[in-house]
Amino acid sequence: MLFLAICVLSLWLSWKFFILFNPKLYQYVNIELLYFQIKLNIGFILMFGILIYLCRKLRHSLTAQKIMPFICVGMFGITLCRDGYLIGVLSPATAIGAISVISVGLILFERKVIYTALIPSLIFLGSIVYLTLNGKIAYAPQFNTASSITFFPFTNQFWVFSMLFFMIPIVVSCFVLQEIMLSQWRHREQIFKTLSTIDPLTELFNRRSIYQQLEKIEQNLIFSTESYGIILLDLDFFKSINDCYGHLVGDKVLIQVAQTLRQNVRLHDIVGRYGGEEFIMIINDNNQMLTRHIAERCRHALSQLNLTTTDGQNILITASFGIAYLKSGTSVQQALHHADAAMYRAKSAGRNSIVLA
């Protein structure tokens, strides 16, 4: 916001210096006020530069973090009100500039910070309008009241180009700032969305995400003859691994199992961590043969894993698999219940095996 204020003031200075070097334009402006405003603008630029330095210097101070936004936004509001009064509070540049800056401010700062500066600014501008309408003060004193620019501004090229010169950079700057911030928000939203659907340890889909995908599949199957195989598997004696070697080793086992499962399914198949040492795979299988084949391939791959601890002890990994099918007329809960029951029958049958519901 402070950099934007310096940019706005720099634009004002360039406009005023342009007039100074073009004497034929003197007829349209209050030249004495112009000289004074140049000095004032330079002073404000230096002041905003000091504020930027203080913000960087005190960025770790909690007190400064609370106070500086009010000071910076307040000073920026004073600058805009002053400039708005000079060129006309009802001019297009004042209106569009105020709307653009307020919209960016509401994104950058807390609302109370913006409203603390906005309410006094609106009162000030409203008072200027009232005093102008009642002839107490001159309207747009930066321009020469003796010229036609005061009475017919839209027919005067100097006034029109001045308004465009003030408006376009502010609008473009605010648009770019908003686009940058919105892009960051979209990126952050995507990160949060990913974190809410992915298990952080194994980087597989988590249980919540699995349920959401199964519900979508269930809806699609209402008018379809397709079927999906659901494979539930539970690592055998995983509690013993945690008890004997510790949870860090247990986590490494889970990560290795997740990688192995991903390597033994197709790209469009769904693999997730169902909870604890349980995993789930969802296979698009119309002939109900592929699911059994993939389950067997995963079972064999897990049994061939060569995991060793830091002291050289081998860890044997096996899993019990249960298979059920989700198709039209079968609910997600029914399919999961059947797969879970089949998995426990595999455990009862001696583990390291596959049972079809």
Rank of each mutant, 00 (worst) to 15 (best):
L195K: 14
S196D: 07
T197P: 04
T197C: 11
I198P: 04
I198A: 06
L201F: 09
L201N: 05
T202L: 06
E203T: 13
F205E: 05
N206E: 09
R207A: 09
R208C: 12
R208V: 11
S209I: 00
I210M: 14
I210Q: 04
I210T: 09
I210E: 01
Y211R: 15
Y211M: 15
Q213T: 09
L214I: 07
L214N: 05
L214A: 03
E215A: 13
E215F: 11
K216Q: 15
I217A: 00
I217F: 01
E218N: 14
E218I: 07
Q219A: 14
L221I: 04
L221H: 05
I222A: 11
F223V: 12
S224T: 10
E226W: 07
S227G: 06
Y228F: 15
Y228P: 03
G229W: 02
I231T: 02
I231V: 13
I231P: 02
L233Q: 03
D234Y: 00
L235F: 00
L235Y: 04
D236R: 03
D236A: 07
D236G: 01
D236F: 00
F237R: 11
F237P: 02
F238L: 11
S240A: 14
I241K: 01
Y245C: 11
G246E: 08
H247I: 08
H247C: 05
V249E: 08
D251I: 12
D251V: 12
L254E: 03
L254D: 01
L254A: 09
I255Q: 14
V257K: 03
A258T: 03
A258S: 13
Q259D: 13
R262H: 08
R262W: 00
R262I: 09
N264D: 08
N264S: 06
V265T: 07
R266P: 04
R266N: 10
R266G: 10
I270R: 01
G276A: 08
E277M: 03
E277V: 06
E278I: 07
F279V: 11
F279C: 07
I280N: 00
M281Q: 07
I282A: 08
I283F: 04
I283G: 01
D285C: 07
D285F: 05
N286Y: 09
M289T: 13
M289Y: 12
L290V: 10
L290I: 11
T291V: 03
T291H: 01
R292N: 13
H293G: 10
H293Y: 14
H293F: 14
I294C: 04
I294V: 15
E296K: 13
R297L: 09
R297Y: 07
C298N: 10
C298W: 04
R299K: 13
R299D: 00
H300V: 15
A301T: 02
A301W: 01
A301S: 15
L302S: 04
Q304M: 14
Q304P: 06
T310H: 11
D311C: 13
D311P: 09
D311W: 10
G312P: 05
